[in-house]
Nucleic acid binder design. Structure first.
Length: 642
RNA sequence: GCGCCCGUAGCUCAGCUGGAUAGAGCGAUUGGCUUCGAACCAAUAGGCCGGGGGUUCGAGUCCCUCCGGGCGCGCCA
């Protein structure tokens, strides 16, 4: 509700300033510093002051007089040096909130493709992968909540170096093991986690890797068979881990099909034809096809050493080259397509996977108008090259609409390393955080963390609800654990390094997911108690007219709570524009705080004044619903009790 | 060497296109359970926003510079 009022006022101000002063784009609104200043502030007088050469305050006064009355606004006041503070008509606002049905955002045309997770299928997922998936999935939920159409892709690099290394590990370090038996009898992703760490430090790895990759690429021999077996098995583990966090995908594009269907060859023709890349005849890159540095760097010298090799002198394509082809395909610009088959169905939703052979009834994927790639910030250089590739091909609009949705890594605090039995050098002990490393096997496995969280949550649930059935307690503990985990991954803004501390992550108090869940449960408890007393929920719109709402909302605390609760769309929209899911998490927390304060100071069920009681029940009902909806955008559920 | 990111309370972090007296959680101290269950609430203490210049009516926010930390910069992915 707040969001539509905001848009309305902003449009009115912009329109007025345009006609009166001939100044464009002046509709910006702010949140006043203090709630006593009103609900919105218009700072436009400060911007006009320079051009009109008048004092801001005088301009503000002129604007207030000129704007006249606006629907839903009780008063415009000149304040400070030239702010215009907006006071909403509380009764009218409450009435509008009460009578506006929940609705998904207006459908926005154009498909958005979001690629996230992208874990190499050669070992168990770790906390760094969780940050990627939770960020990506939450961003998708935000976009969908605001009416956008989104296609979620999880790219599977099933023919890359990392898979090859594990294959080599089996062939050279575990020749006695039967992989198919291992798959049936062990936590295979955990097994590979250790094997990968072991093989990574082996001096002969490079040689083994070359042979293995050759076999994989030509789809022949034992190595190719093992690679397919290992990657498929581990992808399934990854999907299961993500499923626990309520994360799912529409399509799993695989590198094996990008190779088999010769996506690169098609992209290569385009790149050569439009001279986006050239054949280097001298220097250190002699014999390679390279993209000039000027294509992807702001300033560049004549130094061709900065050029990026796309095709090696031995005629093989680099990772970035394949990525350019994939990005072209996402926008429907490659002139080529995958084939698809259903992989599995979860809750009625079918996840598709690419395949090299034509299939009956193939759905359509790709052809996005915007593309977001959720990839950690260390790969920003390569992402820049991909975008430069699009631009060099003349696809400027698509280049502009390609977003590297980057985020910083998840590291470990030294304390947590000690707790996990990871040995640290003296140097590392002094640091505030230590980088995780898949190659060294240093890190926290996603499933281990989830299990620890569930265990901790279960202790709490058991201590409060020992009478409840065990299966139910476990289910609730799981919801709490997931709430804690997802919230933890979201509470930091994207470009802050998370120094992962186990104790902090296991906390359910303060700025955490369980705090917000608990708040929603408390609101629900009031409504449940009402039902237990045999009372039905009142017909709010029949009993609360605008005057009644104005009377009740005259009390500042109630007004502030309603206001806060009605800002969810506003918070989501702001989070989309800034690309920060953390803003939604912050909003959820603030709303929870506001309700807890209300809860503490107000007895709802024992209220004797009928109008007030109905009003308080309505507030409770409304806040509960808003908390639930906001948490859903974060991918967090509200347990039946806590 | 070049590029990107970070530096805000003891710790971990917010701070929306520059705007009114810089916020939260944790930790510390203190107080509050009358079952709408305290995974909660209230109060107190704690800040030359890394240093220095500049732009501006106005800078935590923009520019320059220095210091400190992280990450990139491969014919690896």
């Amino acid at each position: 509700m707040f969001h539509s009022i905001e848009k309305n006022i902003s449009a009115r101000v912009a329109e007025y300033v345009r006609t009166k002063y001939g100044v464009q784009g002046a509709g910006a609104l702010e949140q006043p510093k203090q709630s006593s200043f009103g609900e919105l502030a218009i700072p436009v007088a400060f911007h006009l002051a320079r051009q009109l050469k008048q004092a801001p305050r005088a301009i503000a006064a002129e604007l207030v007089a000129g704007l006249g009355s606006i629907d839903g606004v009780a008063a415009l006041e000149v304040a400070g040096n030239g702010y215009i503070n907006v006071r909403l008509d509380r009764g009218a606002y409450g009435y509008a909130v009460l009578h506006t049905a929940d609705k998904a955002g207006e459908p926005v045309p154009g498909k958005i493709i979001v690629e996230h997770t992208n874990i190499n299928p050669n070992k168990a997922a770790h906390i760094g992968h969780l940050r990627n998936a939770v960020l990506g999935d939450t961003f998708v939920r935000m976009l969908r909540a605001s009416g956008r159409t989104v296609e979620v892709q999880n790219y599977i690099d099933n023919t890359g170096v990392q898979v090859a290394d594990v294959v080599a590990g089996f062939e050279h370090l575990r020749p006695q093991e039967d992989v198919e038996t291992l798959i049936k009898t062990t936590r295979f992703d955990y097994y590979c986690w250790n094997l990968y760490a072991e093989v990574s430090s082996h001096p002969e790895l490079k040689e083994w890797r070359r042979e293995t990759l050759h076999s994989i690429e030509h789809r022949t021999g034992q190595s190719a068979f093992l690679a397919a077996l290992i990657s498929e098995t581990i992808v399934n583990y990854h999907l299961a881990t993500m499923r626990k966090l309520d994360i799912s995908y529409d399509l799993l594009p695989r590198e094996s099909e990008i190779l088999y269907l010769k996506f690169w060859e098609t992209a290569f023709e385009q790149l050569k034809e439009r001279q986006a890349i050239y054949f280097e005849t001298e220097g250190k890159n002699k014999g390679c096809w390279v993209m000039p540095a000027s294509a992807f760097k702001e300033q560049t010298g004549e130094d061709t050493d900065d050029s990026k090799v796309i095709v090696r002198s031995n005629n093989t394509v680099t990772y970035v080259g394949k990525d350019i082809a994939y990005q072209l395909w996402k926008f429907g610009l490659l002139g080529k397509d995958f084939y698809y088959r259903p992989l599995r169905e979860v809750d009625g939703h079918i996840v598709y996977i690419t395949t090299g052979e034509p299939q009956p009834q193939a759905p359509s994927f790709g052809h996005g108008e915007w593309v977001y790639n959720v990839i950690d910030s260390r790969q920003s250089y390569l992402q820049d090259v991909v975008v430069a590739g699009l631009r060099a091909l003349g696809y400027n609009q698509q280049a502009d609409r390609s977003t590297h949705f980057s985020y910083e890594m998840v590291a470990l605090t030294p304390g947590t390393c000690v707790e996990l039995g990871i040995e640290l050098s003296e140097e590392d002990k002094k640091k505030t955080y230590v980088e995780v490393s898949g190659r060294k096997g240093l890190g926290v496995k996603a499933d281990d963390l989830i299990d620890k969280l569930i265990e901790k949550a279960l202790q709490e649930v058991d201590s409060r609800h020992s009478e409840a059935p065990a299966a139910e307690r476990l289910r609730i503990a799981t919801e709490i654990a997931i709430g804690a985990l997802r919230y933890f991954m979201l509470k930091f803004t994207r470009n802050s390094v998370i120094a992962f501390d186990l104790q902090e992550a296991l906390s359910f108090e303060g700025d955490t997911g369980p705090y917000v869940q608990y708040t929603a449960v408390r609101a629900g408890n009031i409504l449940r108690k009402l039902a237990e007393r045999g009372e039905a929920l009142p017909d709010f719109s029949a009993e609360l007219d605008q005057d009644a709402l104005a009377r009740q909302l005259a009390l500042e605390d109630y007004w502030q709570l309603l206001l806060m609760a009605s800002k969810s769309e506003s918070a989501i929209e702001r989070a989309i524009v800034s690309g920060e899911p953390a803003h939604v998490a912050k909003y959820a927390f603030q709303l929870a705080q506001a309700f807890n304060n209300f809860y503490h100071g107000t007895q709802v069920l024992s209220e004797e004044n009928r109008e007030k009681r109905v009003f308080l029940l309505w507030m409770t009902h409304y806040v509960r619903r808003q908390l639930e909806r906001t948490l859903a955008v974060l991918g967090i559920t509200v347990p039946a009790y806590m």
